[in-house]
């Protein structure tokens, strides 16, 4: 029996302005699942992912990721949590004064890899996202779509067991979206757990993965799953 790697139990998040971003969210993610978190803009997808990587503290409820009770007031090892996950955010978070390769290699260097090793691994990963020709270019010379791919490469380069991707294909054209989805599917088939937040229902329909629909901070089709259940696939929802 597989134990969930992510457990959210009655999690709510209300901002000081009394805006409720998440309301009583309860869900479980099993290891190796590819899960779409689908919902329109402002529905709470980003907040949900930010809670999972400890960038936001929920107002109430409990969150456990890889056995770490990240909502405990005494939880300090955020960096250990983040090392278990590759994060792709909407705003890319790239270093503007560095090259494409340096941006990807940076994720390896700060987690203990040598510069040479980091550069080589970054180079390999950039080939996988189709940026091998732009490795030495400054980041600002890239289009938004290319920057998105650099951010994806950086999230994947450490081979994390969990990927939190917030609209990772939002700035990509159809072909590049399919390429990136292909890369993520490869990783999923090798056992990586993927949480993919998107507002594009067309993309969700195309793949037979579990879908969690979210609206106004509430899960519409939420349920707890256990390892005996095959993730429900509702393409087109």
């Amino acid at each position: 029996m597989n134990e969930a790697i992510i457990e959210m139990d009655h999690v709510s998040k209300t901002y000081p302005s009394q805006i409720s971003a998440l309301s009583d969210i309860t869900l479980e993610i099993l290891p190796g699942e590819f899960t779409f978190i689908a919902g329109p803009s402002g529905s709470g997808k980003t907040t949900l992912l930010r809670v999972l990587c400890c960038a936001e503290r929920p107002t109430s409820g409990e969150v456990v990721v890889y056995g770490m009770h990240i909502t405990d007031p005494g939880f300090k090892k955020i960096y250990q949590l983040r090392r278990t996950m590759g994060i792709v955010s909407q705003d890319f978070k790239l270093l503007r004064d560095r090259t494409v390769n340096e941006n990807v290699a940076f994720a390896l260097e700060v987690t203990g890899h040598t510069r040479k090793e980091a550069k080589r691994k970054a180079s390999d990963m950039l080939s996988r996202v189709g940026l091998e020709e732009r490795e030495e270019d400054p980041i600002l010379a890239l289009s938004a779509g290319e920057q998105q791919r650099v951010a994806i490469a950086r999230a994947l380069v450490n081979s994390p067991p969990l990927i939190l991707a917030d609209e990772p294909t939002g700035n990509l054209d159809a072909k590049m979206t399919l390429d990136i989805m292909g890369t993520l599917t490869d990783l999923h088939q090798k056992g990586t757990t993927i949480l993919f937040a998107t507002q594009f229902t067309g993309l969700v329909k195309r793949y037979s993965y579990r879908v969690i629909r979210i609206l106004d901070g509430q899960i519409l089709n939420g349920r707890k799953v256990d390892s005996t259940q095959v993730p429900e696939v509702k393409p087109g929802e």
Partner: peptide, 16 residues
Amino acid sequence: REEIEVMHWVGASPGF
């Protein structure tokens, strides 16, 4: 701050 934010994002240790 940009560099520090990315370090936080990719899991650099506080000491690092």
